[in-house]
Design a protein around this nucleic acid. Sequence first.
DNA 1: TTCACTTTGCCAACGCCGTTTACTTTGCCT
DNA 2: AGGCAAAGTAAACGGCGTTGGCAAAGTGAA
Lengths: 217, 217
Amino acid sequence: MNEIRAAALAQLSTGGPSAISLRAIARDMGLTAAALYRYYDSLESLTEDLCADRYRSMTRSVVAARDAQTDCVSRLRAMCLAYREWALSHPQEYALICGAPVLLTGDTPQEGPAVEKMEAAVDFTLAFLGPFAEAWAGRRTPPPALLPGVLESLDGVVVELLTDKLPPEGIVYFVNGWARLSGAITTEIFGHLRWAASDAEPLFRENLEDMLRQLTA
Amino acid sequence: MNEIRAAALAQLSTGGPSAISLRAIARDMGLTAAALYRYYDSLESLTEDLCADRYRSMTRSVVAARDAQTDCVSRLRAMCLAYREWALSHPQEYALICGAPVLLTGDTPQEGPAVEKMEAAVDFTLAFLGPFAEAWAGRRTPPPALLPGVLESLDGVVVELLTDKLPPEGIVYFVNGWARLSGAITTEIFGHLRWAASDAEPLFRENLEDMLRQLTA
DNA sequence: TTCACTTTGCCAACGCCGTTTACTTTGCCT
DNA sequence: AGGCAAAGTAAACGGCGTTGGCAAAGTGAA
Protein backbone atom coordinates (compact mmCIF):
# COMPACT_ATOMS: atom_id res chain seq x y z
CA MET A 1 0.00 0.00 0.00
CA ASN A 2 2.86 2.36 0.74
CA GLU A 3 4.25 1.63 -2.70
CA ILE A 4 0.88 2.37 -4.26
CA ARG A 5 0.63 5.62 -2.37
CA ALA A 6 4.14 6.56 -3.41
CA ALA A 7 3.39 5.95 -7.08
CA ALA A 8 0.13 7.87 -6.84
CA LEU A 9 1.91 10.73 -5.10
CA ALA A 10 4.48 10.90 -7.86
CA GLN A 11 1.76 11.24 -10.46
CA LEU A 12 -0.08 13.79 -8.34
CA SER A 13 3.02 15.92 -7.89
CA THR A 14 3.79 16.09 -11.57
CA GLY A 15 0.37 16.14 -13.20
CA GLY A 16 -2.12 17.28 -10.61
CA PRO A 17 -5.05 15.49 -9.03
CA SER A 18 -6.61 14.53 -12.35
CA ALA A 19 -3.41 12.80 -13.46
CA ILE A 20 -3.72 10.04 -10.88
CA SER A 21 -4.50 6.92 -12.86
CA LEU A 22 -4.86 3.34 -11.75
CA ARG A 23 -3.31 2.05 -14.93
CA ALA A 24 -0.32 4.36 -14.67
CA ILE A 25 0.23 3.38 -11.04
CA ALA A 26 0.11 -0.28 -12.01
CA ARG A 27 2.46 0.38 -14.91
CA ASP A 28 4.97 2.07 -12.60
CA MET A 29 4.82 -0.87 -10.22
CA GLY A 30 5.03 -3.54 -12.90
CA LEU A 31 1.49 -4.73 -12.26
CA THR A 32 -1.83 -4.91 -13.98
CA ALA A 33 -4.47 -2.32 -13.15
CA ALA A 34 -6.80 -5.04 -11.94
CA ALA A 35 -4.28 -6.07 -9.29
CA LEU A 36 -4.76 -2.77 -7.49
CA TYR A 37 -8.33 -3.74 -6.73
CA ARG A 38 -6.92 -6.15 -4.17
CA TYR A 39 -5.98 -3.09 -2.13
CA TYR A 40 -8.55 -0.43 -2.95
CA ASP A 41 -12.20 -0.57 -3.87
CA SER A 42 -11.81 2.04 -6.57
CA LEU A 43 -9.68 4.91 -7.75
CA GLU A 44 -11.76 7.22 -5.61
CA SER A 45 -10.96 5.39 -2.38
CA LEU A 46 -7.28 5.29 -3.34
CA THR A 47 -7.40 9.03 -3.90
CA GLU A 48 -9.11 9.61 -0.59
CA ASP A 49 -6.52 7.53 1.18
CA LEU A 50 -3.76 9.54 -0.46
CA CYS A 51 -5.57 12.72 0.50
CA ALA A 52 -5.69 11.70 4.16
CA ASP A 53 -2.02 10.82 3.95
CA ARG A 54 -1.09 14.24 2.60
CA TYR A 55 -3.26 15.91 5.21
CA ARG A 56 -1.26 14.15 7.89
CA SER A 57 1.99 15.23 6.27
CA MET A 58 0.83 18.83 6.30
CA THR A 59 -0.24 18.51 9.91
CA ARG A 60 3.21 17.25 10.86
CA SER A 61 4.84 20.30 9.27
CA VAL A 62 2.53 22.69 11.06
CA VAL A 63 2.87 20.96 14.41
CA ALA A 64 6.65 21.01 14.09
CA ALA A 65 6.53 24.75 13.50
CA ARG A 66 4.27 25.17 16.51
CA ASP A 67 6.53 23.22 18.82
CA ALA A 68 9.55 25.29 17.81
CA GLN A 69 8.00 28.30 19.54
CA THR A 70 6.94 28.96 23.10
CA ASP A 71 4.79 32.09 23.05
CA CYS A 72 1.27 31.39 21.89
CA VAL A 73 1.18 34.23 19.36
CA SER A 74 4.55 33.21 17.98
CA ARG A 75 3.22 29.70 17.71
CA LEU A 76 0.19 30.82 15.75
CA ARG A 77 2.30 32.93 13.43
CA ALA A 78 4.74 30.10 12.82
CA MET A 79 1.92 27.68 12.17
CA CYS A 80 0.24 29.93 9.64
CA LEU A 81 3.51 30.54 7.83
CA ALA A 82 4.30 26.83 7.85
CA TYR A 83 0.83 26.09 6.52
CA ARG A 84 1.34 28.45 3.60
CA GLU A 85 4.87 27.18 3.06
CA TRP A 86 3.69 23.60 2.83
CA ALA A 87 0.94 24.52 0.40
CA LEU A 88 3.35 26.50 -1.74
CA SER A 89 5.92 23.73 -1.92
CA HIS A 90 3.31 21.02 -2.51
CA PRO A 91 0.77 22.81 -4.69
CA GLN A 92 -0.71 19.75 -6.35
CA GLU A 93 -1.10 17.94 -3.05
CA TYR A 94 -2.75 21.02 -1.64
CA ALA A 95 -5.04 21.11 -4.66
CA LEU A 96 -6.02 17.54 -3.89
CA ILE A 97 -6.65 18.38 -0.25
CA CYS A 98 -8.60 21.52 -0.97
CA GLY A 99 -10.16 20.27 -4.16
CA ALA A 100 -13.85 20.57 -4.64
CA PRO A 101 -15.74 17.65 -3.22
CA VAL A 102 -18.97 19.68 -3.42
CA LEU A 103 -20.76 16.95 -1.58
CA LEU A 104 -24.31 17.34 -2.68
CA THR A 105 -26.32 15.50 -0.08
CA GLY A 106 -25.41 15.43 3.58
CA ASP A 107 -23.68 12.14 3.12
CA THR A 108 -21.51 11.07 6.01
CA PRO A 109 -19.69 8.02 4.71
CA GLN A 110 -19.16 6.37 8.12
CA GLU A 111 -16.62 3.99 6.63
CA GLY A 112 -13.62 3.60 4.39
CA PRO A 113 -10.93 6.12 3.53
CA ALA A 114 -13.41 9.00 3.32
CA VAL A 115 -13.86 9.11 7.06
CA GLU A 116 -10.09 8.93 7.59
CA LYS A 117 -9.73 11.90 5.31
CA MET A 118 -12.27 13.86 7.34
CA GLU A 119 -10.55 12.92 10.59
CA ALA A 120 -7.23 14.06 9.17
CA ALA A 121 -8.80 17.39 8.20
CA VAL A 122 -10.22 17.87 11.68
CA ASP A 123 -6.88 17.00 13.27
CA PHE A 124 -5.21 19.62 11.13
CA THR A 125 -7.67 22.30 12.12
CA LEU A 126 -7.54 21.40 15.79
CA ALA A 127 -3.76 21.75 15.81
CA PHE A 128 -4.36 25.50 15.79
CA LEU A 129 -6.80 25.39 18.67
CA GLY A 130 -4.39 25.35 21.60
CA PRO A 131 -2.40 28.47 20.74
CA PHE A 132 -5.53 30.24 19.58
CA ALA A 133 -7.36 29.56 22.84
CA GLU A 134 -4.38 30.72 24.84
CA ALA A 135 -4.12 33.92 22.82
CA TRP A 136 -7.85 34.47 23.10
CA ALA A 137 -7.67 34.16 26.86
CA GLY A 138 -5.03 36.90 26.87
CA ARG A 139 -7.15 39.44 24.98
CA ARG A 140 -7.03 42.93 26.36
CA THR A 141 -10.37 44.18 25.06
CA PRO A 142 -13.64 42.35 24.55
CA PRO A 143 -14.46 41.57 20.91
CA PRO A 144 -17.29 43.36 19.09
CA ALA A 145 -20.72 41.97 19.83
CA LEU A 146 -21.78 39.11 17.58
CA LEU A 147 -24.69 39.33 15.22
CA PRO A 148 -27.80 37.57 16.51
CA GLY A 149 -28.10 33.97 15.37
CA VAL A 150 -24.42 33.32 14.84
CA LEU A 151 -23.94 31.24 17.96
CA GLU A 152 -27.02 29.15 17.24
CA SER A 153 -25.73 28.33 13.78
CA LEU A 154 -22.74 26.43 15.16
CA ASP A 155 -24.26 22.97 14.95
CA GLY A 156 -21.28 21.01 13.62
CA VAL A 157 -20.09 17.95 15.47
CA VAL A 158 -16.60 19.32 16.06
CA VAL A 159 -17.91 22.38 17.85
CA GLU A 160 -18.30 20.32 21.02
CA LEU A 161 -14.55 19.84 21.08
CA LEU A 162 -14.10 23.59 21.23
CA THR A 163 -16.57 24.52 23.94
CA ASP A 164 -14.33 23.56 26.82
CA LYS A 165 -11.36 25.53 25.52
CA LEU A 166 -13.06 28.64 24.15
CA PRO A 167 -16.02 30.83 25.06
CA PRO A 168 -18.77 31.05 22.42
CA GLU A 169 -17.47 34.26 20.84
CA GLY A 170 -14.03 32.71 20.69
CA ILE A 171 -15.43 29.80 18.71
CA VAL A 172 -16.94 32.13 16.14
CA TYR A 173 -13.67 33.98 15.77
CA PHE A 174 -11.78 30.71 15.52
CA VAL A 175 -14.00 29.44 12.73
CA ASN A 176 -13.96 32.70 10.83
CA GLY A 177 -10.24 33.05 11.36
CA TRP A 178 -9.91 29.57 9.96
CA ALA A 179 -11.89 30.54 6.89
CA ARG A 180 -9.73 33.62 6.49
CA LEU A 181 -6.47 31.71 6.80
CA SER A 182 -7.21 28.72 4.64
CA GLY A 183 -9.13 30.91 2.22
CA ALA A 184 -6.18 33.23 1.74
CA ILE A 185 -3.85 30.31 1.09
CA THR A 186 -6.25 28.57 -1.27
CA THR A 187 -6.83 31.78 -3.18
CA GLU A 188 -3.11 32.24 -3.63
CA ILE A 189 -2.35 28.62 -4.53
CA PHE A 190 -5.13 28.51 -7.09
CA GLY A 191 -3.60 31.55 -8.76
CA HIS A 192 -6.36 34.02 -8.04
CA LEU A 193 -3.99 36.67 -6.75
CA ARG A 194 -1.62 36.67 -9.69
CA TRP A 195 -3.29 39.77 -11.12
CA ALA A 196 -1.95 41.61 -8.10
CA ALA A 197 1.41 40.12 -7.25
CA SER A 198 3.67 37.41 -8.57
CA ASP A 199 4.88 36.69 -5.05
CA ALA A 200 2.11 36.97 -2.51
CA GLU A 201 4.21 36.34 0.57
CA PRO A 202 4.33 40.00 1.70
CA LEU A 203 0.59 40.24 1.23
CA PHE A 204 0.10 37.09 3.27
CA ARG A 205 2.34 38.37 6.05
CA GLU A 206 0.39 41.60 6.13
CA ASN A 207 -2.86 39.64 6.23
CA LEU A 208 -1.49 37.44 9.00
CA GLU A 209 -0.30 40.29 11.17
CA ASP A 210 -3.69 41.91 10.73
CA MET A 211 -5.32 38.73 12.00
CA LEU A 212 -3.00 38.49 14.97
CA ARG A 213 -3.58 42.16 15.80
CA GLN A 214 -7.30 41.56 15.89
CA LEU A 215 -6.90 38.41 17.94
CA THR A 216 -4.81 40.04 20.64
CA ALA A 217 -6.59 43.38 20.59
CA MET B 1 -21.81 27.77 -29.83
CA ASN B 2 -24.56 28.87 -27.47
CA GLU B 3 -26.12 25.43 -27.78
CA ILE B 4 -22.78 23.81 -27.00
CA ARG B 5 -22.34 26.02 -23.96
CA ALA B 6 -25.86 25.22 -22.81
CA ALA B 7 -25.28 21.50 -23.06
CA ALA B 8 -21.94 21.79 -21.29
CA LEU B 9 -23.55 23.89 -18.57
CA ALA B 10 -26.21 21.25 -18.02
CA GLN B 11 -23.57 18.60 -17.50
CA LEU B 12 -21.55 20.88 -15.26
CA SER B 13 -24.54 21.68 -13.07
CA THR B 14 -25.46 18.07 -12.50
CA GLY B 15 -22.12 16.32 -12.41
CA GLY B 16 -19.49 18.90 -11.62
CA PRO B 17 -16.56 20.16 -13.68
CA SER B 18 -15.18 16.68 -14.35
CA ALA B 19 -18.50 15.57 -15.85
CA ILE B 20 -18.17 17.83 -18.85
CA SER B 21 -17.57 15.51 -21.78
CA LEU B 22 -17.30 16.24 -25.47
CA ARG B 23 -19.03 13.02 -26.37
CA ALA B 24 -21.90 13.63 -23.99
CA ILE B 25 -22.37 17.16 -25.31
CA ALA B 26 -22.42 15.83 -28.86
CA ARG B 27 -24.88 13.11 -27.81
CA ASP B 28 -27.21 15.68 -26.29
CA MET B 29 -27.08 17.75 -29.45
CA GLY B 30 -27.50 14.82 -31.83
CA LEU B 31 -23.99 15.20 -33.20
CA THR B 32 -20.74 13.34 -33.28
CA ALA B 33 -17.97 14.30 -30.91
CA ALA B 34 -15.70 15.10 -33.84
CA ALA B 35 -18.16 17.73 -35.04
CA LEU B 36 -17.48 19.85 -31.97
CA TYR B 37 -13.93 20.35 -33.12
CA ARG B 38 -15.33 22.69 -35.76
CA TYR B 39 -16.08 25.09 -32.90
CA TYR B 40 -13.45 24.44 -30.26
CA ASP B 41 -9.84 23.38 -30.43
CA SER B 42 -10.22 20.97 -27.55
CA LEU B 43 -12.28 20.16 -24.51
CA GLU B 44 -10.04 22.44 -22.51
CA SER B 45 -10.79 25.49 -24.61
CA LEU B 46 -14.49 24.69 -24.49
CA THR B 47 -14.27 24.49 -20.71
CA GLU B 48 -12.41 27.77 -20.53
CA ASP B 49 -15.00 29.43 -22.71
CA LEU B 50 -17.74 28.12 -20.44
CA CYS B 51 -15.77 29.33 -17.46
CA ALA B 52 -15.56 32.86 -18.85
CA ASP B 53 -19.28 32.71 -19.56
CA ARG B 54 -20.10 31.75 -15.97
CA TYR B 55 -17.76 34.44 -14.68
CA ARG B 56 -19.74 36.99 -16.64
CA SER B 57 -22.99 35.63 -15.28
CA MET B 58 -21.70 35.98 -11.75
CA THR B 59 -20.49 39.49 -12.47
CA ARG B 60 -23.96 40.45 -13.70
CA SER B 61 -25.51 39.25 -10.44
CA VAL B 62 -23.04 41.17 -8.34
CA VAL B 63 -23.33 44.34 -10.39
CA ALA B 64 -27.12 44.20 -10.17
CA ALA B 65 -26.86 43.98 -6.38
CA ARG B 66 -24.46 46.91 -6.38
CA ASP B 67 -26.71 49.11 -8.47
CA ALA B 68 -29.67 48.45 -6.19
CA GLN B 69 -27.92 50.41 -3.44
CA THR B 70 -26.69 53.97 -3.20
CA ASP B 71 -24.42 54.14 -0.16
CA CYS B 72 -20.98 52.78 -0.87
CA VAL B 73 -20.87 50.55 2.21
CA SER B 74 -24.34 49.22 1.47
CA ARG B 75 -23.17 48.53 -2.03
CA LEU B 76 -20.16 46.58 -0.84
CA ARG B 77 -22.28 44.59 1.59
CA ALA B 78 -24.87 43.78 -1.07
CA MET B 79 -22.17 42.76 -3.53
CA CYS B 80 -20.50 40.41 -1.08
CA LEU B 81 -23.81 38.82 -0.16
CA ALA B 82 -24.76 38.47 -3.82
CA TYR B 83 -21.37 36.94 -4.53
CA ARG B 84 -21.89 34.30 -1.88
CA GLU B 85 -25.49 33.78 -2.93
CA TRP B 86 -24.50 33.14 -6.52
CA ALA B 87 -21.79 30.69 -5.46
CA LEU B 88 -24.21 28.87 -3.19
CA SER B 89 -26.90 28.52 -5.82
CA HIS B 90 -24.43 27.55 -8.56
CA PRO B 91 -21.90 25.46 -6.63
CA GLN B 92 -20.61 23.45 -9.57
CA GLU B 93 -20.17 26.51 -11.72
CA TYR B 94 -18.34 28.16 -8.87
CA ALA B 95 -16.18 25.07 -8.55
CA LEU B 96 -15.31 25.44 -12.22
CA ILE B 97 -14.51 29.11 -11.79
CA CYS B 98 -12.45 28.64 -8.65
CA GLY B 99 -11.10 25.25 -9.60
CA ALA B 100 -7.41 24.67 -9.43
CA PRO B 101 -5.60 25.68 -12.56
CA VAL B 102 -2.31 25.51 -10.65
CA LEU B 103 -0.53 27.00 -13.59
CA LEU B 104 2.99 25.74 -13.23
CA THR B 105 5.01 28.06 -15.37
CA GLY B 106 4.28 31.73 -15.81
CA ASP B 107 2.40 30.99 -18.97
CA THR B 108 0.33 33.87 -20.23
CA PRO B 109 -1.70 32.37 -23.08
CA GLN B 110 -2.17 35.64 -24.99
CA GLU B 111 -4.87 34.05 -27.14
CA GLY B 112 -7.95 31.92 -27.21
CA PRO B 113 -10.58 31.42 -24.52
CA ALA B 114 -8.00 31.41 -21.73
CA VAL B 115 -7.40 35.12 -22.04
CA GLU B 116 -11.15 35.79 -22.12
CA LYS B 117 -11.46 33.84 -18.92
CA MET B 118 -8.77 35.95 -17.30
CA GLU B 119 -10.41 39.15 -18.50
CA ALA B 120 -13.73 38.00 -17.09
CA ALA B 121 -12.06 37.31 -13.75
CA VAL B 122 -10.49 40.76 -13.68
CA ASP B 123 -13.79 42.38 -14.58
CA PHE B 124 -15.43 40.60 -11.69
CA THR B 125 -12.82 41.75 -9.23
CA LEU B 126 -12.86 45.32 -10.49
CA ALA B 127 -16.62 45.53 -10.00
CA PHE B 128 -15.84 45.85 -6.30
CA LEU B 129 -13.30 48.61 -6.81
CA GLY B 130 -15.61 51.62 -7.07
CA PRO B 131 -17.50 51.18 -3.80
CA PHE B 132 -14.33 50.07 -2.04
CA ALA B 133 -12.41 53.16 -3.12
CA GLU B 134 -15.26 55.40 -2.05
CA ALA B 135 -15.46 53.73 1.34
CA TRP B 136 -11.70 53.91 1.71
CA ALA B 137 -11.74 57.62 1.02
CA GLY B 138 -14.26 58.02 3.82
CA ARG B 139 -12.12 56.31 6.48
CA ARG B 140 -12.01 58.06 9.81
CA THR B 141 -8.68 56.75 11.07
CA PRO B 142 -5.50 55.89 9.17
CA PRO B 143 -4.88 52.18 8.74
CA PRO B 144 -2.05 50.41 10.60
CA ALA B 145 1.33 50.85 8.99
CA LEU B 146 2.20 48.30 6.36
CA LEU B 147 5.02 45.84 6.72
CA PRO B 148 8.09 46.79 4.71
CA GLY B 149 8.20 45.27 1.24
CA VAL B 150 4.48 44.86 0.79
CA LEU B 151 4.05 47.76 -1.59
CA GLU B 152 7.00 46.69 -3.69
CA SER B 153 5.52 43.23 -4.10
CA LEU B 154 2.52 44.54 -6.03
CA ASP B 155 3.88 43.91 -9.50
CA GLY B 156 0.77 42.52 -11.19
CA VAL B 157 -0.48 44.11 -14.38
CA VAL B 158 -3.89 44.98 -12.96
CA VAL B 159 -2.38 47.02 -10.16
CA GLU B 160 -1.97 49.93 -12.55
CA LEU B 161 -5.73 50.11 -12.88
CA LEU B 162 -6.01 50.67 -9.14
CA THR B 163 -3.39 53.34 -8.61
CA ASP B 164 -5.55 56.21 -9.77
CA LYS B 165 -8.47 55.23 -7.55
CA LEU B 166 -6.69 54.13 -4.40
CA PRO B 167 -3.60 55.12 -2.42
CA PRO B 168 -0.96 52.42 -2.02
CA GLU B 169 -2.19 51.23 1.38
CA GLY B 170 -5.71 51.05 -0.02
CA ILE B 171 -4.52 48.73 -2.76
CA VAL B 172 -2.99 46.36 -0.25
CA TYR B 173 -6.19 46.32 1.76
CA PHE B 174 -8.22 45.81 -1.40
CA VAL B 175 -6.18 42.81 -2.44
CA ASN B 176 -6.17 41.27 1.00
CA GLY B 177 -9.84 41.98 1.44
CA TRP B 178 -10.38 40.26 -1.85
CA ALA B 179 -8.46 37.21 -0.66
CA ARG B 180 -10.50 37.22 2.52
CA LEU B 181 -13.82 37.48 0.72
CA SER B 182 -13.31 34.99 -2.05
CA GLY B 183 -11.39 32.73 0.31
CA ALA B 184 -14.27 32.62 2.77
CA ILE B 185 -16.74 31.77 0.03
CA THR B 186 -14.50 29.16 -1.56
CA THR B 187 -13.86 27.56 1.81
CA GLU B 188 -17.58 27.32 2.46
CA ILE B 189 -18.52 26.08 -1.01
CA PHE B 190 -15.85 23.41 -0.95
CA GLY B 191 -17.31 22.10 2.28
CA HIS B 192 -14.41 22.96 4.56
CA LEU B 193 -16.62 24.61 7.16
CA ARG B 194 -19.10 21.80 7.58
CA TRP B 195 -17.35 20.62 10.71
CA ALA B 196 -18.49 23.88 12.30
CA ALA B 197 -21.88 24.70 10.86
CA SER B 198 -24.31 23.21 8.39
CA ASP B 199 -25.41 26.69 7.36
CA ALA B 200 -22.53 29.13 7.27
CA GLU B 201 -24.53 32.22 6.39
CA PRO B 202 -24.46 33.71 9.90
CA LEU B 203 -20.72 33.12 10.07
CA PHE B 204 -20.30 34.81 6.71
CA ARG B 205 -22.39 37.81 7.78
CA GLU B 206 -20.27 38.13 10.90
CA ASN B 207 -17.12 37.89 8.81
CA LEU B 208 -18.48 40.47 6.38
CA GLU B 209 -19.46 42.98 9.04
CA ASP B 210 -16.03 42.56 10.56
CA MET B 211 -14.47 43.42 7.21
CA LEU B 212 -16.70 46.45 6.75
CA ARG B 213 -15.92 47.61 10.29
CA GLN B 214 -12.22 47.49 9.52
CA LEU B 215 -12.68 49.21 6.20
CA THR B 216 -14.59 52.17 7.62
CA ALA B 217 -12.66 52.37 10.89
C1' DT C 1 -25.74 26.37 -65.23
C1' DT C 2 -21.51 24.98 -63.81
C1' DC C 3 -17.44 25.09 -61.41
C1' DA C 4 -14.63 25.95 -57.40
C1' DC C 5 -14.51 26.48 -52.60
C1' DT C 6 -15.81 26.74 -47.81
C1' DT C 7 -18.60 24.96 -44.16
C1' DT C 8 -20.33 21.34 -41.50
C1' DG C 9 -20.78 16.95 -40.31
C1' DC C 10 -19.88 11.71 -40.15
C1' DC C 11 -17.08 7.39 -39.89
C1' DA C 12 -13.43 4.83 -38.32
C1' DA C 13 -9.69 4.43 -35.80
C1' DC C 14 -6.01 5.15 -31.94
C1' DG C 15 -4.76 5.07 -27.39
C1' DC C 16 -6.02 6.20 -23.00
C1' DC C 17 -9.08 5.29 -18.85
C1' DG C 18 -11.92 2.57 -14.67
C1' DT C 19 -13.99 -1.61 -13.77
C1' DT C 20 -15.50 -6.52 -13.82
C1' DT C 21 -15.11 -11.41 -14.53
C1' DA C 22 -12.94 -15.67 -14.66
C1' DC C 23 -8.76 -18.02 -14.27
C1' DT C 24 -4.08 -19.11 -12.57
C1' DT C 25 -0.30 -19.26 -9.44
C1' DT C 26 1.75 -19.09 -4.97
C1' DG C 27 2.32 -20.13 -0.38
C1' DC C 28 0.70 -21.12 4.08
C1' DC C 29 -1.80 -23.86 7.63
C1' DT C 30 -3.69 -27.96 9.21
C1' DA D 1 -1.51 -34.32 1.16
C1' DG D 2 -5.36 -31.41 1.03
C1' DG D 3 -7.56 -27.23 1.31
C1' DC D 4 -7.74 -22.47 1.26
C1' DA D 5 -6.86 -17.63 1.00
C1' DA D 6 -3.88 -14.13 -1.09
C1' DA D 7 -2.13 -11.96 -5.14
C1' DG D 8 -1.78 -11.43 -9.79
C1' DT D 9 -3.06 -11.99 -14.87
C1' DA D 10 -5.73 -11.88 -19.32
C1' DA D 11 -9.51 -10.42 -21.66
C1' DA D 12 -13.22 -7.86 -22.23
C1' DC D 13 -16.77 -3.77 -21.81
C1' DG D 14 -17.94 0.81 -22.27
C1' DG D 15 -16.47 5.55 -22.01
C1' DC D 16 -13.29 9.16 -23.04
C1' DG D 17 -10.39 12.97 -26.13
C1' DT D 18 -8.47 13.40 -30.46
C1' DT D 19 -7.23 12.79 -35.41
C1' DG D 20 -7.60 12.17 -40.48
C1' DG D 21 -10.07 11.30 -44.44
C1' DC D 22 -14.27 11.74 -46.77
C1' DA D 23 -19.06 13.20 -48.03
C1' DA D 24 -22.76 16.38 -48.29
C1' DA D 25 -24.55 20.90 -48.40
C1' DG D 26 -24.39 25.56 -49.16
C1' DT D 27 -22.19 29.94 -51.62
C1' DG D 28 -20.74 32.91 -55.02
C1' DA D 29 -18.88 34.05 -59.32
C1' DA D 30 -18.05 33.09 -64.36
